[in-house]
Design a protein around this nucleic acid. Structure first.
Lengths: 229, 229
DNA sequence: CGCGAGCTTGACGTTGTTCAACTAGAGTGG
DNA sequence: CCACTCTAGTTGAACAACGTCAAGCTCGCG
């Protein structure tokens, strides 16, 4: 066990930091620690969630499956999977994952029993409120993504993706774990077209790109491309 | 006032039915009743919500604005607008509508003060839990929509739209308030292409279409088109 | 050294948008 | 009562943006 107990866990954020020691103990009692290798599937679209997955170290992609996947977002450390799916069982139906998640690099996660988590949310009002805020903020990000998807052309979508990555990693010089195909799927654009557009951006000195080292040279222009395209 | 008070309102559903008389009284005390005419904007993308809008009679479209709008869903009577936006203010930012809503026909709504609503959710745990369930179920529908958008071709998307409408109105013979353009925007397809595909479906005896009277003749085939396309 | 995965580029083809023209019906005003 | 205008719907033709295909390249690893 890399993490001794939920009680002392240093990765607690959001609603977890509002839980009592007893509640954290309950979660800890049947907690699982898992190491995912690069490429491993963390959760599978269409299945019923049995655990809240707390990615405490690593990186993963959230995507809708298809002939070409569509990446909804990139998860970094200290993020959770399956929170929303814990509660959309209103009409007696089983909740389902509407997306898959896969590790982009070796990653570590704790699996917490979903029923225990639900019970805590039912008992602890403060936690419940924070879960609500968390879910709403995810939905908000998600709507922004759909706006880009539905309103922008490939140039605009790729500019958005690059700005998204820069914001996510909080730097203009990103050493990406993402392949070109990941970027393509994040931008809902074909692999080849993505590469062509990235090359254009490079020769226009808007970005620099060397292998997987990405540098945003001119964010203003990128933002302009995102707006206008 | 068409509705005397929230307390006696017969339109209460979900979390509203879990509120106490005092809480409903509080909402009622500064409640507004509004009639929207066909075409009226009910809420505007990019603005901050000030009220929970309860559409108690009528029909409206929820859409992301752009050169071509993208319709996320159709709202029928007894639905709420702005619930999600009430809580995504975690990081101190103002919550914003990420979509617009417009009346497709003359519609009636009550506007409830959002701050009062927030306070109730903060006090009443049962209501909070039900709000959570409500939001998660909306997000679930929403993800299904994005799956169709990102994975299906225009035929599949239009088949999905028709099946969606049939399920929404709970009938195979729909007297639509939607124009062809609405159907196009709901399917993320150009107006002309939408009309062509609808004509195909008609000549293949899969649907019947006379003006705005739509009849689904062969749902199995529609489902097959949605799956395969 | 050879293999395979990831990356890149150019040529080609297709789907679906755009444009243009036309019809029908509904509302308006002289 | 009949021009008129405007909106909604429909159809066909032209175009272009993208995706697809094919080929070759590089690099890391066994």
């Amino acid at each position: 066990m890399l993490i001794p107990s939920c009680v002392d866990c240093t990765f607690k954020k959001h609603f977890f930091s509002l839980m009592t020691t007893e509640e954290l103990d309950a979660l800890n009692s049947n907690r699982l620690e898992v190491k995912y290798k690069k490429g491993d599937l963390i959760c599978k679209q269409g299945t019923t969630p049995t655990h809240i997955i707390c990615l405490y170290n690593g990186i993963a992609k959230v995507y809708i499956e298809g002939n070409n996947n569509f990446l909804l977002s990139i998860l970094t450390s200290q993020n959770y999977i399956g929170i929303q799916s814990s509660f959309n069982c209103a009409s007696g139906k089983e909740p389902l994952f509407h997306y898959s998640v896969a590790a982009l690099d070796d990653s570590y996660a704790c699996l917490l029993d979903i029923q225990t988590f639900r019970t805590i949310v039912h008992i602890n009002h403060a936690v419940c409120l924070e879960v609500l805020a968390y879910i709403c903020s995810i939905e908000s990000d998600f709507l922004k993504k759909v706006e880009v998807l539905s309103q922008k052309n490939p140039h605009g979508r790729i500019a958005d993706t690059l700005l998204y990555l820069s914001e996510l990693f909080n730097t203009d010089r990103i050493d990406m774990k993402l392949t070109r195909k990941d970027i393509a799927e994040l931008s809902y654009t074909s692999l080849e077209n993505t590469i062509k557009i990235l090359s254009e951006l490079k020769s226009d000195k808007i970005i620099n790109l060397d292998g997987r080292k990405l540098e945003l040279l001119d964010k203003k222009k990128l933002q302009k491309i995102r707006e206008l395209a």
